[in-house]
Structures are given as structure tokens and as C-alpha cells.
Simulated assay, not measured.
Amino acid sequence: MKTSTDELLVLVAVIDSGSITAAAEKLGQTVSGVSRALTRLEKKLDTALVRRTTRRLQLTDEGEAFLQRARAIIEAVEEAEESVARGRQRPSGRLRVDAASPFMLHCVAPHMKAFSALYPEIRLELTSNERTVDLLEQKVDIAIRIGTLPDSTLHARALGSSKLRLLASPAYLAEYGEPRSVDALREHRLIGFTAPEHLNRWPLRVGRKEESLKIEPSITASSGETLRQLVLSGWGIACLADFMTVADVRDGRLVPILGNLLADQRQPVAAVYYQSATLAGRVQCFLDFIAARVRL
């Protein structure tokens, strides 16, 4: 690399200030020093960047093109320096994280003691909403959302995806029997969501084209955690994501059913946030932490 960043800074300062004298004052250098740096840059590039007249300085065509690149390089260097500086500082301040209650209970809350041990100066505020929240209105820094994200101005980081399964408790199956077909399933007590309606379409292969079954629930609830508790109590059958039920299945509290007819449907999970220089450090460390802990 022939050119130094100091020479690029001189060129930008001269153009932005309108004169070598003003640039020297801005940079805290001598006029002769700035003039020599500009001349040295032109010699290295073997081209004139600035036309000097008694009244003003004017960029040549080559100077115009080079100035744009010089600004981009300076901006990139400053951004890199700021990133390193942030890395040396311990993230601190309030961080408000929102998630649907099942994800908060099963995937966030269990890891927050470890997070606070790593970042004791971050003051966490955890909130739960079953519906999509407006980050600015609710003063939320990070929202963890389950399902396909709509187009928006928010930044997003994918955390993975979670498979959907039909589940019932051993007690329910002992009392009512296990359904072996879609038609038999219709005769059972089904647990569904109050809203949104699409959550009451279960990923079962129905016919050759359609790969979902619209259910008529016997009882509905707004929270996936409430559905989980209903299933655990033996009330009926529900369609729930692995992230909140994997331990129940492993320990025998819940039993997957109709696996042979189940389509491989997964719910994407992502963290969304606004880009903010003030928040960048604590947002980034939380995202890195939760992505490493939550294995979806």
C-alpha cells in the first residue's frame, strides 16, 4: 500500500475545509506539513488530485474519484477502531428483552444466572408478550420472535428453528386411546390457540396436496405454555414446538403421536432489534450468549 491513512486524512481535510491553511488548523499541523503531505500523495499516485489557484482548490476528475474511496477507507478504519474500543469496555446499562412466555420460560430464563455472572453490569429486564410488540413503543431492545418474520426495518439474527409435534400425556392416552389416523384424531379433545388462527392448522399430511389440518379445538388459550400445561394435565392433544416440550418427551411426561403422518414443519426463531451505537455492545453480547446456549 503506497498511501498512508494520514495522507488520506489530509486530502479529506483540505477539501472539506476549503484550503490548506484551514485544513492545517483543523488537523493541528503546520501549513507546510499539510502541503507536503498532499504533494507526497499526488506523487505516490502519479496524478494530480487538486488544482491549486490563488483563490480556491478544485478537485480534478481523478481527485473526485479518489476522494470517495478515501472517505470510505477512513470510515472503515474508524468503525474498526470503535469496534475494538467497545470490545475493551465491559457492556453495561439496561437491556430489555421480550419473548413469548414459553420461550422465555424454557430457553431464556434458565440461562440468565450464567449471563449475569459474565456481564454483571448489564441490568436485565425480561418481559413476555404472546403477540408481536412494537420495540420502540414498548422500549424493548431485543425481541425474540417465533415464526416467519415480516419485512421490516429491524435487524434480525436467526437463532434456529423448532420442530412441531402432536403430543398427549400418557394418562390421556390410557383413558381415551391413541389416534392412529387423521379421522380418528378428529374424535379426540384437541387443544388450540385463541389467536392467530394459522396456529390451529396442524402439519399433518391430509391427502396428496394439502399438508395441514385445520382443527376445531375443544379449548383454546393465548399462550403456548398454557397449552403445554393442559396437555400435561391430561386434558387433550396439542401441537407444540420442541423447544418447550423436548424435556417432557425425554422424561416420559408427554408422548408424540401420529409421527408417521406428521409433515416436517419447523417454526423459525429469531431475535430482532434496532441498530444503535449506544446499545450495540450489550445487544451483541446477549445475542452471542443466547445463540450459544439455545440449541434449536
Rank of each mutant, 00 (worst) to 15 (best):
58 Q>H: 05
33 G>P: 00
46 D>M: 14
40 R>W: 08
49 L>R: 04
73 I>N: 07
79 E>V: 13
81 E>W: 05
31 V>L: 15
35 S>D: 13
87 G>S: 04
38 L>M: 15
38 L>A: 08
89 Q>Y: 08
33 G>K: 04
43 K>M: 05
87 G>P: 07
65 A>Y: 12
65 A>S: 06
28 G>D: 02
89 Q>N: 12
65 A>H: 08
41 L>Q: 10
55 R>G: 09
42 E>G: 08
37 A>G: 08
33 G>F: 04
58 Q>M: 10
73 I>P: 04
43 K>T: 14
54 T>N: 10
69 R>E: 13
76 A>P: 00
30 T>R: 06
55 R>E: 12
34 V>T: 05
77 V>S: 07
53 T>D: 04
48 A>H: 14
59 L>Q: 01
35 S>F: 13
57 L>W: 01
47 T>S: 06
48 A>P: 08
45 L>S: 02
43 K>V: 15
34 V>N: 05
42 E>S: 11
59 L>T: 02
50 V>E: 00
85 A>R: 12
40 R>A: 05
83 S>D: 05
59 L>H: 01
41 L>M: 14
28 G>M: 02
39 T>V: 12
83 S>F: 11
86 R>F: 05
74 I>W: 01
69 R>D: 15
81 E>Y: 10
70 A>D: 12
60 T>I: 09
73 I>A: 14
54 T>D: 09
64 E>H: 08
64 E>Q: 13
80 A>Y: 09
36 R>L: 11
39 T>F: 05
44 K>M: 01
76 A>K: 03
73 I>Y: 11
55 R>N: 10
54 T>A: 14
56 R>P: 01
72 A>Q: 15
41 L>G: 03
59 L>V: 02
70 A>P: 03
72 A>P: 06
61 D>V: 09
51 R>N: 15
38 L>C: 07
44 K>T: 00
61 D>E: 15
89 Q>R: 15
48 A>Q: 07
49 L>Y: 06
91 P>E: 12
32 S>G: 06
61 D>A: 13
60 T>H: 09
78 E>C: 11
56 R>I: 07
60 T>G: 02
55 R>Y: 12
64 E>R: 15
72 A>F: 07
66 F>V: 05
49 L>K: 02
51 R>K: 15
74 I>D: 11
91 P>R: 01
89 Q>P: 03
73 I>H: 09
59 L>R: 03
69 R>F: 11
40 R>M: 06
33 G>N: 03
80 A>Q: 12
56 R>S: 14
66 F>T: 00
50 V>P: 00
35 S>T: 07
61 D>C: 04
58 Q>R: 09
48 A>M: 08
88 R>E: 13
63 G>A: 00
63 G>L: 02
53 T>S: 13
88 R>G: 09
34 V>G: 07
86 R>I: 04
71 R>L: 12
38 L>W: 03
58 Q>T: 12
33 G>Q: 01
91 P>A: 02
45 L>Q: 04
